[in-house]
Simulated assay, not measured.
Amino acid sequence: MARFDSRDETSILLEDSADEFLSHRFDPQRLRAQYQARSGYDRTFWAELAGQGWLALRLPEAMGGSELGIEHVAVLAHALGRHAAPDPFVACAVMPAVLATAAGSADTSSWRRIAAGQVTGKAVSTVAWQEGPFALDVGLPTTRAQRRQEGGFLLSGCKCQVVAGDWADILLVSASLDGEAALFAVQRTAPGVHVEGRLTSDGGTIATIEFRDLELPPDALLASGAPCLASLQQAVDEAMLATAAQLLGLADRAFEITLEYLRTRVQFGHPIGSFQALQHMAVDVRIGLALAAAACGAAVRLQSGQPGSTAARAAVAAAKARTSDTALLAGRFGVQAHGAIGFAAEADIGCYLKSAIRLAAWLGNGTQQRLRVARITDAKAEHLKDGA
């Protein structure tokens, strides 16, 4: 199994409990929901994740969470990846929890209500921050909020690529307010919110959401100013890293499934795993897994110790690039090794490839992330040059 190279006692216990729970409670038939054009999300299973305390893993203790670090989030994301679970753990548990750290600059009672729903699993929150299909870094939003004379705010704009945007109860929406970044809590069913959801390849959903002169009460404002922008960027960075860990788990299990098939499928009187061509392809995947695990481990250490630093952001982008490519490689090799059955709904390997396709694309594929590494490191070089 491809694991991170440094784990503490909490990580080991979390990994063991996650493997035990998911092996018994996750229904693999949910992976086939997309074949019937249905979402694979399950509110009952989401509540069970909450019952394990996993949705509150990253939440502050003052809000009922465990306040564990990104290294523990990565362990759980890896476990979910090994089961190709379509549940939006990263988008609807990790990102809102990271944003909750901005609560000190706004009305904390609003955050406490959101956190309470997350702790119990009774209310799902998702973050609506992207305003273009290729937006990977946080900037001043074009979605705008205006103060109303009678109190409250008026919100107008459009967000895209919102994971589970048609399934969540609460939308955490970034917007410009008085020339600064701000974050608002919006009920998905509120008048003036128009949601267009689409099914993804793995049974998840993404949505385009339009806000048309949406009236919001004063307590809808969760955070504003520079701390808000910094928290948004940290949430995106941690989401990229957690997704990288999920992709690593996905690739790891896909490769195991393929190796099992290579050992048992007999052709011309021999297991097909004895064929040299397939052995060479398997070696490529094995090397990719080792490199992806090393990249994730390095990114976890830097993000944990130096969050927001140039080194950490570059490492996170590199990890997302490496794991995206490796998961796609493992999935494609698996389907190819299985032959025609690999495309059938009965075969798990096809579901793993579908999940890899979606997760590799979300928050930037391998090519996009390598370009981000270049931009991040070039910006640091220019800064050092100017300061010389």
Rank of each mutant, 00 (worst) to 15 (best):
C158G: 00
T377I: 12
G334N: 00
V138E: 05
V236G: 00
I209H: 03
M281V: 08
G104T: 11
P133Y: 11
D237L: 13
A312H: 09
T205W: 09
I257M: 13
D213A: 13
A230V: 11
A239F: 03
E215R: 13
F333S: 02
S309Y: 06
A340G: 00
G334I: 03
A33Y: 05
A185G: 09
V195Y: 01
S231H: 09
S304M: 06
L363G: 00
L371W: 06
A175W: 05
H194P: 01
S156P: 07
G197Y: 07
V75Y: 02
R7P: 01
M281R: 11
A115H: 01
A62W: 10
E131R: 14
S231M: 08
D166K: 07
E382W: 04
V186A: 11
E61L: 11
K320W: 07
F255L: 03
R301S: 14
A223K: 07
Q303M: 14
Q34G: 02
T264W: 03
Q279A: 06
S105D: 13
L199K: 03
T367R: 10
S174H: 04
E71I: 02
V335K: 03
W167N: 01
L250N: 10
G132D: 13
M240P: 02
D386Q: 12
A242K: 12
Y35K: 08
P227K: 10
F184W: 04
I272F: 05
S201K: 12
I341R: 15
V300N: 08
T101R: 15
L140G: 12
A311L: 13
R358D: 10
T108H: 01
I376H: 11
A321T: 06
A314T: 10
V73I: 10
N365A: 07
A344S: 15
G297T: 08
V266I: 15
A244T: 06
V193I: 01
E382T: 01
Q146R: 13
I357V: 09
K159M: 13
G334D: 12
A347G: 10
T200Y: 07
T10D: 01
R3L: 15
A190D: 13
E215D: 04
D252G: 02
A181D: 10
A295R: 00
A226I: 08
R25A: 15
A318H: 08
G297M: 09
A330I: 04
E260M: 02
A295K: 02
D252P: 01
V186R: 05
A347C: 09
A207Y: 07
G249M: 11
E215N: 14
F26K: 05
G204M: 03
R188L: 04
C92A: 12
F184A: 03
F184C: 02
G364A: 14
Y352V: 10
L155M: 09
D27G: 03
A84G: 03
Y352W: 05
S324P: 05
V266H: 04
T264C: 00
L222N: 06
G51E: 08
G339Q: 05
A388L: 05
F268A: 08
T264Y: 00
F255C: 05
A115I: 00
D5M: 12
M240S: 15
V300Y: 09
L289D: 04
E346P: 00
E61D: 13
R322W: 04
S109D: 12
T200V: 07
Q368P: 00
E382F: 14
K159W: 14
L291F: 00
G350N: 11
F45Q: 08
G139Q: 01
P96R: 03
G364F: 05
T44K: 11
G64D: 07
